[in-house]
């Protein structure tokens, strides 16, 4: 008899802890040719703003040791575009038991509010909204607002009254305990961390950045130990659930996040390299839970012994 994998991420009932990191999973349908996406506990869609964004110039990504660096700049079709393009698909996915978390982008408090209001009006399929206050690749908004407790709190204070749906916040890899506490105090239902880590990659022959901007966001296996540590810090600091993100390649990587205190865990860059990785990782997670001799994955959350 297999153990129960069901978890509750701040009011979002997931049949298993697996989620996808926003920005590495498109809007879900891109993966339907590789496996049945509804096997996941949830997906998190690419960040969307109230109006479409063109994103940053080329080049937008480069390989780095142990991962990749990107500067996409949250290119998105706007909430209306998302709903028109794939709202029906996302509603179907949710009906099949896979929760749909829609990520929200903005350059300012007003833009976050406008996007949340549009999701409320147009996206009944959204199981929850994830406010991205930590994108490293946009000039204002994003990490500029999410890297201080005051800035982070200001955004959540403004959007919280606009939605009764579960509200998640995508956190920057900085000042985790104090920002986590500030977000909890403003009524966030769950925290997602970490967003990509600000970094640089330089072509020494041309002396130019390998991206169109000097800095970008690091993701991939190189981030995993940092993300596990920050998830552990967040889980110590707050009582709301945490979704761990960063360099997951295997069920063992998911297990590390759970032991560190994560309720759910997102697969990120690995989706891009191994587009059919999620069913494999889910099977590996199930095997680990069974091996641990528990009948509920929740019994392993925060079960780090040290």
């Amino acid at each position: 008899m297999s153990a129960s994998l069901a978890v509750n991420l701040g009011g979002i009932a997931m049949k298993n802890p697996l989620n996808t990191a926003s920005g590495t999973f498109g809007y879900g349908w891109q993966f339907e040719g590789f496996y049945d996406v509804s096997c996941l506990g949830a997906i998190t869609t690419k960040g969307c703003a109230a109006e479409p964004w063109a994103g940053n110039d080329q080049p937008r990504m480069a390989d780095v040791y142990g991962g990749m660096i990107n500067s996409v700049g949250l290119q998105n079709p706007g909430v209306r575009g998302l709903v028109a393009q794939c709202g029906e698909y996302l509603a179907g996915l949710r009906a099949e038991g896979c929760q749909v978390i829609c990520q929200v982008a903005g350059h300012s408090v007003e833009e976050y509010v406008a996007a949340v209001e549009l999701f409320e009006e147009l996206a009944p399929f959204a199981s929850g909204l994830e406010i991205n206050i930590s994108c490293p690749n946009i000039a204002c908004g994003g990490i500029a607002m999410g890297s201080t407790p005051e800035g982070a709190a200001e955004v959540i204070r403004a959007v919280r009254p606009r939605t009764s749906r579960p509200l998640l916040v995508k956190m920057a890899p900085a000042r985790v305990p104090e920002i986590a506490k500030a977000l909890e105090a403003e009524g966030a239902d769950a925290l997602t961390l970490i967003n990509s880590i600000p970094g640089m990659a330089i072509d020494v022959h041309t002396r130019r950045s390998k991206l169109s901007k000097p800095t970008g966001g690091l993701s991939g296996p190189l981030c995993h130990p940092i993300a596990v540590r920050m998830v552990w810090e967040a889980a110590q600091a707050v009582s709301i659930p945490v979704c761990g993100v960063g360099g997951v390649r295997s069920g063992e990587d998911v297990a590390e996040f759970i032991l560190a205190g994560a309720t759910a865990v997102s697969i990120g860059s690995q989706n891009l390299y191994e587009p059919d990785c999620a069913p494999r990782i889910l099977a590996e997670l199930e095997a680990w839970v069974d091996e641990q001799g528990v009948d509920d994955v929740n019994d392993l959350r925060g079960a780090l012994e040290c």
Binding site: G23, T24, F25, G26, Q30, F31, G33, K46, P52, A54, G55, Q58, P59, R60, M61, A62, M68, N70, V72, Q75, S269, N271, L272, Y273, P275
Partner: peptide, 22 residues
């Protein structure tokens, strides 16, 4: 030619500016 991470529409890294948008 573009640098790209996925090849199947998920990552938005290989954007091309066109008269119809990105």
């Amino acid at each position: 030619e573009r640098t790209m991470a996925c090849g199947f529409g998920a990552c938005s890294t290989c954007a091309v500016k066109t008269i119809h948008g990105m």
